[in-house]
């Protein structure tokens, strides 16, 4: 499970892309892609490879005016699923 001190980043070859045909955000990786909803896109937009997961969840909590605990739980599950699929890595 991703922790507050972990620093997530998108590995080389993975990028956010707005797909105009589907009218939705997609996360592209070589030969693979997943579609994102607005919340998923908002989480990934905060990931810069420098800020920790704890800092990111605080920023999202302020942006959405929602409890940081709920955001941390949902975001950790989401990012964990992306990490399992190799769409995301954590800084060593």
């Amino acid at each position: 499970m991703i922790g507050p001190d972990d620093i997530p980043y998108l590995p080389r070859g993975v990028r956010l892309h707005f797909d105009r045909v589907r009218d939705t955000w997609v996360l592209l990786a070589p030969e693979r892609a997943i579609t994102l909803d607005q919340v998923g896109q908002a989480i990934l937009a905060e990931i810069d490879g420098a800020r920790s997961f704890g800092v990111i969840t605080q920023a999202l909590a302020a942006k959405y005016n929602a409890p940081a605990e709920e955001i941390a739980k949902d975001s950790a599950g989401f990012l964990g699923a992306l990490k399992d699929r190799r769409f995301l890595e954590l800084q060593p």
């Binding site: 693979r32 997943i34 919340v39 908002a42 999202l60 959405y64 929602a66 949902d74 989401f78």
Partner: peptide, 12 residues
């Protein structure tokens, strides 16, 4: 926009 649990869908 309200917070909701994010969903992902794989493009086959």
């Amino acid at each position: 926009m309200a917070w909701s649990k994010p969903q992902i869908r794989e493009i086959e």
